[in-house]
């Protein structure tokens, strides 16, 4: 554990809590892509199956459980409790365009051809692209509430901090995980355009982020 890794985990947790509280307090999931949230729940489910096989640390187990519970709770809020506010019309990204190639790639490129390893790889690849329905929705509607942009900022920052963590680990431990690093770079690149808009429009302006 190093400072980049810890800051990354905290950033990830902050992002998920921001989104959950936004929906819970406003009793509305307007502007939120339910599809992205289902994909994130799928990411955590397929990655954290090792909860049943190995014990790493109390921190590791608790964080995994928190991520799992919050991701499913968020999906529940969007599709059940506040489904009246769900904008299914604009949440029209075709997730099969992500799921099919990601599944295929996980079978082709993995560390071992075992169910847990393939599912772990699947989760890493899927996480890299899971935000696309959300970004697609913002592009389609042309705007995002500032609280939604704060969520996206922390979610993007988390993987960027993990990149710093991997650089740190490579230099201190010689640790290098090719699948995670390549996917992490791809994932972070997806947020770059958003980071730019966030700094220039949300932080310097006020209220909603509207696209030009």
């Amino acid at each position: 554990m190093n400072i980049f890794r810890l800051a990354g985990d905290v950033s990830h947790l902050v992002a998920i809590i921001i989104l959950f509280l936004k929906i819970w307090k406003s009793k509305s999931c307007a502007g939120i892509s339910g599809k992205s949230q289902v994909l994130f729940a799928l990411v955590f489910t397929s990655r954290y199956l090792d909860l049943f096989t190995v014990f790493i640390s109390a921190y590791n187990t608790i964080m995994k459980l928190v991520f799992l519970v919050l991701s499913y709770a968020t999906v529940y809020l969007i599709y059940m409790r506040f489904r009246g506010s769900y904008d299914s019309e604009n949440d029209s990204f075709r997730v099969e365009f992500l799921l099919v190639p990601v599944t295929g790639l996980a079978f082709l490129e993995n560390y071992a051809f075992t169910p847990l390893e393939i599912l772990w790889t699947f989760s890493i690849f899927l996480e890299a692209v899971a935000i696309m329905p959300q970004l697609f929705m913002i592009t389609k509607t042309g705007e995002a509430e500032s609280i939604t942009t704060h969520y996206l900022f922390f979610l993007g920052l988390y993987r960027a901090l993990y990149l710093a963590n991997w650089v740190w680990r490579y230099h201190t431990e010689g640790f290098f995980d090719q699948i995670a690093v390549v996917s992490g770079v791809v994932q972070t690149i997806f947020y770059c355009d958003f980071f730019y808009l966030y700094v220039t429009r949300v932080l310097r302006g006020s209220g909603k982020m509207s696209l030009p």
């Binding site: 554990m1 990830h12 190995v54 790493i56 640390s57 995994k64 071992a112 075992t114 995980d177």
Partner: peptide, 10 residues
């Protein structure tokens, strides 16, 4: 993974 990488990351 089981051998190829450390599994402490989230």
């Amino acid at each position: 993974g089981t051998d190829s990488k450390l599994k402490d990351e989230l």
